[in-house]
Write a protein that binds this DNA or RNA. Structure first.
Length: 885
RNA sequence: GCCCGGGUGGUGGAACUGGUAGACACGUUGGACUUAAAAUCCAAUGGCCCGAAACGGUCGUGCGGGUUCAAGUCCCGCCUCGGGUACCA
C-alpha cells in the first residue's frame, strides 16, 4: 500500500472539479458559515508558501463546518489592479489585462493544486468590468452621502438641509456647501508625490523613513494637487466604538484605535493683543492654562498674516517658505530639532491676564486640532524643548509630589519637564475667581473646563488623528472614476446607466504630462458631450484599496448584473464569520473596508454595521538564512552544514543561522509547487498547520515537511490496508484514543489551534499502529476527522471503505463521552511543591480519605520520615501536595 | 519615546482557569533489515551529578525580586527580539 500522493491528489482534485463538490447555493433552511481569505494580488512570481497558510486554515474550518451541517461560503478571487502589471506594460507594451490574466491563471492553478475547497463559480476579479461597475457604483453612493452628526449616520445628499444664509448667497454657494459635506470630494490637497512611481500616495503609504512603501525609494515630495478625498474622519467615532463588539485580536483593535487617535480636551479662545480677534487652540490639558507662557501657530495657519506684527513679516515669510520646502528626510527622526520664529504678536492668557508671545513653528501641525496651541513648557516635553531653545519662560504649576526629590526640585524651578500627575501650585487668580491649587490632574481638567465654558471662552472638545483619505491615483490600471468635469467647472457623476465607465484602450501606458494619469492621453475616451454640455472625464483612477473594500459582498452574489448583490443573499450570508489574512492589513484595508461598509449600512444597502465578525492574523513564514560574523548575509546555496554548524562553501568561514524573510537574494525562497511535487498537497497543508500556532511567525524547514509526510505515509499504509480493518468489537483503548482525538480536534479547530490537533492525530495513529487492528467504524471516523486537514488522502480512504460520493458530505462524527470516563486517577504527589511520586485513587475518592491514604503510602515514607507534616493539599482530579518541615 | 506581541531542550513547538515543564515532530545516537546505501522499523534523547540500574539526586521556562501549599502561567523592576506608530498639543 504505497502512498502514491501524486495520483491520489490528481484524482480527487479532478473529482471535486467535475462534481462541483464545493459549490455553494444560498439555502436559508441551513445555518450559514462565511469563511473568507484576504484575496491575493496575483503577482508575476506566483504563490509563495505564505499564501497557503491562511487559505489552509479557512479551508480546514470550512470543511469542518460543512460536515457539521453548515452551509459554507468559502470563495476566492483576485485583487488584480495594481502597479506591477502597469510597469510591465510601460516596459513591454503588454496590456496590463493580459499580464493580469496570465498571473491569475498561475495563481488559480497553484491554489487548485493545494486542494483548497473553493467554490470557483464565485471567483471574482476586481479588474473585471462586471465587478468594477459596482465599485464605481459604491463610489457614487459615497459621493452622494453626507454625515449627519445629529443622528450619527450617513444620509443621502438630497436630505441635506441648506442653511438659509447659504441659500440666499446663490447657487454657487449652495453647490459649495453641498460639496463640503459629501463623503467624497474633489479638492486641492497637500499630498505626497512619488517621483519614481509618478503617483500620489496616501499619507499612510509613506513610511517613517520618508520612503514610499510600494517602490521603496525615497523620491517622495510634497505637492499641492487636485485630488479625490474621502471624509473617513466623519466616521471616526463609529469606527472606534464598532471595534468593541468584534472578535478580533486585541492588537489589531489597538492599532486601529491608535490610528483613529481619539483625544478629549478643550478648545480655548485667546484674545490677541491689538487685534479684535481670538486665536483658538485645542489642548488636552486645559488644567495647565496657568502655565501657558507662549503660543504657537502652524506655518500654514489661516490667520498667520493677520497675526504677524509689523516688522516681523519678512522673517515669518522666510520661515514659512523654508518649512514648506522641508524634504521628507528633514521631517523624520533626527530632524526633531525645533525651529520657529516670533510673530511679533502677543496674546492674553485668559487665566493670568498676562501677555504671552505668539510664535510660528512647524512642530505644530495644521491638520490637527485648530493648528494652534497654547504652550506649557513646564508640563509638555515638546514645548519644554522649544522654550529652552528660544529662551521662553517656563512656569511650573504642578508640583510633582510623587517624583524623586532631585527631579521634583528641578521641575519646581522650571529646569525639567513634568507631564504626570501632581498637585497644582501657582494656579489661582482672585480676579477671575478660578483656583485649582492643590487639586490633582483629573479634577483640575474638569474644573478649568467648566470655568472656560462658564466664561464662554472655551468648551470641551474631541479630536481625532485620522485624516481624510486620499483616494485617487495617476495610473491606468485602476478603476476609472464615474465622474465628468464640465467646462464651467461643474462636477457630475456618470449616470448609473453609464456604468461601468470602462478603461480606454491604450497603446502606451506612460503617464501624461504634469504627472497626469495615462488616461489623459486617451483623447477619444477623454472628451464627450451630453445634455449638460461638453465634459472631460476624470483621469485619475481609484487606489488598489477600492476593489478590496467590498469584495466580500460580491462573493455572496457574484454574477448579479442588476445590483452588487441581492438583498436576500446579503441578509443570509453577512457578516463574514471568519476572516483570515496577514497582519499587514491590520489598519488600512480593514479600516477602509469597515468605513465603506458602515456607509452602505447607513444607506440601507447592507444589513450589518460591521463586515467581519471574527478576524485572525496568520503569522509570517520565514526561512533560515546565514550570515557571517560581520553580519553580511550568505545565499543559502553557498552554505554547507557539518555536525550542526554552518560554513561558507568557498571561504570555509563559520556562519550563524538566522531567521529571515524569504528573498531571492538569500536564495531561501520555498516554492509551494516544489513541495507539492515532492511531498504532495496534503503534506504541504499539514506542515503549514503543524509548524506552530497560526498567528506565530515561524521558519520553514524542509525536514519539517518530511515529518508530516512520514505521518501521512504511516497513516495511509495502516488505514488503507484492509488487513488492518476488522469487524466486531473495538479495543477499549483504541475507542478511548479515538474519542479523545475527536474531542481535541473539534475544540482545536474551533480555536484555530491546528498544530495541536495534528499532534493528536499522530498520537492516535501511533496507537492504532501499535495495536495493529482497528474496526471499520474506527477507520471511518478517523478519516472523517482528518479530512479537513488532509482531504485527498481521506477521500481515498473513504472510497476504499466502500463509500461513493465525497467524504465532505458525510456528517462529522460525534464524541461519545462514555468512552472517556475514567474510574481512577493517578495523582502526582508533590512534597513541598516538587513532584516526587504517583499514586492512584478512584476519581470520586474523598479528599480526606486521599489525605489519610497518601501519608500511609510506603512511597511517601521516604519523604516524610523525620519530617513534620504541616499540611496536605488535595486538589481532586489534579494534584496532591504534602508540605513538610 | 509611546502602544502591542514574544523569549521554554540542539531545532519547530506543547502545557486547561496557578497544579506532573518539555506533548507531538525534527535532529542526533544506538540497534534491526540490506552486500552496501537510501527508505522503513525499534530504542534512547533537557543539563549536570551518583550509580550496575532505579519509578536516585540536583539545576532548569530571558534576568532580578515578590505573592502562593504550588509560578512557564500572577505582581513589581529590568534585559532582549519582533510588529505598529511617531512633534497629534
Amino acid at each position: 500500500m504505497d502512498y502514491n500522493f501524486t495520483d491520489i491528489e490528481k484524482k480527487w482534485q479532478q473529482y471535486w472539479e467535475e462534481n462541483k463538490t464545493f459549490k455553494t447555493v444560498t439555502d436559508t433552511s441551513k445555518p450559514k458559515f462565511y469563511a473568507l481569505d484576504m484575496f491575493p494580488y496575483p503577482s508575476g512570481s506566483g504563490l509563495h508558501v505564505g499564501h497557503p497558510e491562511g487559505y489552509t486554515a479557512t479551508d480546514i474550518v470550512s470543511r469542518y463546518k460543512r460536515m457539521k451541517g453548515f452551509n459554507v461560503l468559502h470563495p476566492m478571487g483576485w485583487d488584480a489592479f495594481g502597479l506591477p502589471a502597469e510597469q510591465y506594460a510601460i516596459q513591454t507594451g503588454t496590456h496590463p489585462s493580459v499580464t493580469t490574466n496570465k498571473n491569475c491563471d498561475t495563481f488559480r492553478r497553484q491554489i487548485k493544486s493545494l486542494g483548497l475547497g473553493y467554490d470557483w463559480d464565485r471567483e471574482i476579479n476586481t479588474t473585471d468590468p462586471k465587478y468594477f461597475k459596482w465599485t464605481q457604483w459604491i463610489f457614487s453612493k459615497l459621493y452622494n452621502t453626507w454625515f449627519d452628526k445629529n443622528t450619527n449616520k450617513g444620509r443621502h445628499i438630497s436630505e441635506l438641509e441648506i442653511p438659509a444664509e447659504i441659500k440666499t448667497a446663490g447657487t454657487i454657494a449652495v453647490r459649495e456647501y453641498i460639496d463640503s459635506k459629501r463623503l467624497a470630494y474633489y479638492d486641492n490637497a497637500q499630498v505626497w508625490w512619488c517621483k519614481t512611481c509618478k503617483i500620489v500616495c496616501a499619507n499612510e503609504e509613506v513610511l517613517n523613513d520618508g520612503s514610499h512603501e510600494k517602490c521603496g525609494t525615497k523620491e517622495v515630495e510634497r505637492r499641492n494637487l487636485k485630488q479625490w478625498m474621502l471624509r473617513i474622519p466623519h466616521y471616526a467615532e463609529r469606527l472606534l466604538t464598532g471595534l468593541d463588539g468584534l472578535d478580533w485580536p486585541e492588537g489589531v483593535k489597538d492599532m486601529q484605535r491608535n490610528w483613529i487617535g481619539r483625544s478629549t480636551g478643550a478648545e480655548v479662545d485667546f484674545k490677541l493683543d491689538g487685534l479684535d480677534k481670538n486665536l483658538r487652540v485645542y489642548t488636552t490639558r486645559p488644567d495647565t492654562l496657568f502655565g501657558a507662557t507662549y503660543m504657537v501657530i502652524a506655518p500654514e495657519h489661516g490667520m498667520l498674516r493677520e497675526i504677524t506684527a509689523d516688522g516681523h513679516h519678512e522673517q515669518v515669510e522666510a520661515y514659512v517658505k523654508a518649512a514648506s520646502l522641508k524634504s521628507d528626510l528633514d521631517r523624520t527622526d533626527l530632524a526633531k530639532d525645533k525651529t520657529g520664529v516670533f510673530s511679533g504678536r502677543y496674546a492674553i492668557n485668559p487665566v493670568t491676564g498676562k501677555k504671552i508671545p505668539v510664535w510660528v513653528a512647524d512642530y505644530v501641525l495644521i491638520g490637527y486640532g485648530t493648528g494652534a496651541i497654547m504652550a506649557v513648557p513646564a508640563h509638555d516635553t515638546r514645548d519644554f524643548e522649544f522654550a529652552k531653545k528660544f529662551g521662553l519662560d517656563v512656569v511650573c504649576i504642578l508640583d510633582p509630589v510623587s517624583a524623586e526629590p532631585a527631579l521634583r526640585e528641578k521641575v519646581l524651578k522650571g529646569e525639567a519637564c513634568w507631564t504626570e500627575d501632581g498637585a497644582y501650585i501657582n494656579s489661582e487668580n482672585t480676579a477671575t475667581g478660578l483656583s485649582i491649587n492643590g487639586m490633582n490632574k483629573a479634577t483640575g481638567i474638569k474644573t478649568v473646563t467648566s470655568w472656560l465654558e462658564q466664561k464662554n471662552i472655551g468648551k470641551e472638545a474631541v479630536n481625532y488623528k485620522i485624516r481624510d483619505w486620499l483616494f485617487s491615483r495617476q495610473r491606468y490600471w485602476g478603476e476609472p472614476f464615474p465622474i465628468k468635469h464640465y467646462e464651467n467647472g461643474d462636477i457630475e457623476l456618470a449616470d448609473e446607466k453609464e456604468l461601468p465607465v470602462m478603461l480606454p484602450e491604450l497603446e502606451k501606458f506612460e503617464p501624461g504630462t504634469n504627472g497626469e494619469s495615462p488616461l489623459s492621453n486617451a483623447h477619444e475616451w477623454l472628451y464627450g458631450e451630453d445634455a449638460k454640455g461638453k465634459f472631460r472625464r476624470e483621469t485619475n483612477t481609484m487606489p488598489q484599496w477600492a476593489g478590496s473594500c467590498w469584495y466580500y459582498l460580491r462573493y455572496i452574489d457574484p454574477t448579479n448584473d442588476s445590483a452588487p448583490f441581492s438583498v436576500e443573499a446579503e441578509n443570509y450570508w453577512m457578516p463574514v464569520d471568519l476572516y483570515i489574512g496577514g497582519a499587514e492589513h491590520a489598519v488600512l484595508h480593514l479600516l477602509y473596508s469597515r468605513f465603506w461598509h458602515k456607509v452602505l449600512f447607513d444607506l440601507g444597502i447592507v444589513s450589518t454595521d460591521e463586515p467581519y465578525q471574527k478576524l485572525y492574523n496568520q503569522g509570517m513564514i520565514l526561512a533560515f538564512a546565514y550570515e557571517t560574523k560581520s553580519g553580511s548575509k550568505v545565499p543559502s546555496d553557498e552554505v554547507e552544514e557539518k555536525d550542526g554548524n554552518f560554513f561558507h562553501k568557498t571561504t570555509g568561514e563559520e556562519l550563524t543561522q538566522i531567521v529571515a524573510k524569504m528573498s531571492k537574494s538569500l536564495k531561501n525562497v520555498v516554492n509551494p509547487d516544489d513541495v507539492v511535487k515532492n511531498y504532495g498537497a496534503d503534506s504541504l497543508r499539514l506542515y503549514e498547520m503543524f509548524m506552530g500556532p497560526l498567528d506565530a511567525t515561524k521558519p520553514w524547514t524542509d525536514t519539517g515537511v518530511k515529518g508530516v509526510f512520514n505521518f501521512l505515509t504511516r497513516a495511509y499504509k495502516f488505514f488503507a490496508d484492509t488487513k488492518n480493518i476488522i469487524s466486531g468489537q473495538e479495543d477499549p483503548e483504541i475507542l478511548k484514543g479515538l474519542h479523545q482525538t475527536l474531542k481535541k480536534v473539534e475544540s482545536d479547530i474551533e480555536n484555530l489551534k491546528f498544530n495541536t490537533a495534528i499532534s493528536q492525530f499522530m498520537i492516535f495513529t501511533n496507537l492504532a499502529i501499535k495495536k495493529g487492528k482497528v474496526t471499520k467504524e474506527t477507520a471511518e471516523t478517523f478519516a472523517k476527522t482528518l479530512n479537513p486537514f488532509a482531504p485527498h488522502i481521506c477521500e481515498e480512504l473513504w472510497q476504499l471503505y466502500g463509500h461513493s460520493g465525497s467524504i465532505n458530505h458525510s456528517p462529522w462524527p460525534l464524541v461519545n463521552e462514555a468512552y472517556l470516563v475514567e474510574n481512577t486517577y493517578e495523582y502526582p504527589v508533590s512534597v513541598n511543591g516538587k513532584m516526587r511520586f504517583k499514586i492512584e485513587f478512584p476519581v470520586d475518592a474523598d479528599p480526606k480519605e486521599i489525605e489519610k491514604q497518601v501519608l500511609l503510602d510506603e512511597k511517601a515514607g521516604k519523604w516524610i520520615e523525620n519530617m513534620q507534616v504541616v499540611k496536605v493539599i488535595v486538589v481532586p482530579g489534579k494534584i496532591i501536595n504534602i508540605v513538610v518541615k
